[in-house]
């Protein structure tokens, strides 16, 4: 058993986090919102310096772990660039990256990016994508745009194999969301230690403490599910897609609790632009809603599990 990322991957994540901080940290997102056309140039060269775009998460376990750590660090700063999606680019298509979408309402935070990009649906069909219509202001869209899809593969025969692409996309996306949960918790911890009411820090109130702990249990749970799903991808387990969906369901559900509590503990200040939480919260929405939100993810997972359940201690055991 080894349930941790390698030391090298963790170090890579820390380096990426420091590099993004040096490049502007929270200001990266603020600048990108003011000038959406700059968003790629704000983030991509910083990570290119670290060799991020040479990482091959499909090729080696080490690079997959480095990619996961990188996504978590990108999430910490809510970096205004689809890092996980770029890391998921398929080797056999001339594209910058690949997004996971639903066939019915394809959308992704690709507004203003030159591309080209590809998309893969949850059932493994691949498409070239064209952003639909003029980009809406990122303040409300968080760079999400509807996509027109053009099929890439002539037949659907390879769709099952391409579930690995979907799996990787879901898992790395959740590592990004995990970084956002880390940040939301850190911001909230700092806030309740500092903010005084009734002559004492909010952190002294048990009602505040208990809310914080409920959020932390959710965040910690996502961290473990994310590790498990990553290993499942690494080990090419047949259950990897189920594990990715299980992670996604756990992560989306946790994000609802974590952000609800973090906003509550920040009070009105948490809604204001001057508070970092409000930025992380707004830009977490695409990750929580796309390709499917909580109900949609639960529905897909439930259908997948059918009667056999989720792989674990008692999968395949008969009840006699």
């Amino acid at each position: 058993m080894n349930i941790d990322l390698s030391d090298e991957a963790l170090e890579y994540g820390r380096t990426a986090q420091a590099a993004l901080e040096a490049a502007g940290g929270d200001k990266l997102l603020e600048d990108a919102e003011l000038e959406p056309a700059r968003r790629a140039s704000l983030v991509s060269p910083v990570l290119a310096e670290l060799g991020a775009w040479e990482l091959d998460p499909r090729g080696s376990a080490d690079e997959l772990e480095a990619a996961a750590a990188l996504c978590r660090s990108a999430g910490w700063w809510a970096a205004p660039y689809p890092v996980a999606e770029r890391l998921c680019r398929p080797a056999d298509l001339p594209v910058d990256g690949q997004v996971v979408v639903t066939g019915t309402a394809p959308a992704a935070p690709l507004a203003g990016l030159a591309g080209p990009w590809s998309a893969v649906t949850l059932d493994g069909r691949r498409f070239r994508v064209t952003p639909r219509g003029p980009a809406r202001p990122p303040r409300t869209s968080a760079f999400v745009t509807g996509l027109d899809l053009t099929p890439v593969d002539a037949d659907a025969d390879g769709a099952a194999e391409r579930l690995a692409d979907v799996t990787l996309g879901l898992v790395l996306g959740c590592w990004t969301l995990l970084g956002m949960l880390d940040r939301a918790m850190a911001l909230t911890r700092a806030h309740v230690l500092e903010r005084q009411q009734f002559g004492q820090p909010l952190a002294r109130f048990q009602g505040v403490q208990f809310q914080l702990t409920d959020a932390e249990v959710e965040r910690a749970g996502v961290a473990e599910l994310a590790g498990y799903a990553l290993w499942s991808v690494q080990a090419r387990r047949p259950e990897a897609f189920d594990d990715a969906l299980a992670l996604r369901l756990g992560a989306v559900e946790a994000a609802e609790t974590v952000f609800r509590i973090c906003h509550q503990l920040h009070g009105a200040m948490g809604f204001c632009d001057e508070t970092t939480l409000s930025w992380v919260s707004r830009y977490s929405l695409p990750l929580r809603r796309l390709p499917l939100g909580r109900a949609g993810t639960e529905d897909v997972l439930t259908r997948r599990l059918g009667r056999r359940g989720l792989d674990g201690l008692f999968a395949g055991e008969s009840f006699e």
């Binding site: 749970g221 473990e224 599910l225 498990y228 299980a246 369901l249 756990g250 559900e253 639960e298 997972l301 439930t302 599990l305 359940g309 989720l310 674990g312």
Partner: peptide
Amino acid sequence: ARMLVHARR
């Protein structure tokens, strides 16, 4: 299904 995820968690 959600409880199975919570049990794994």
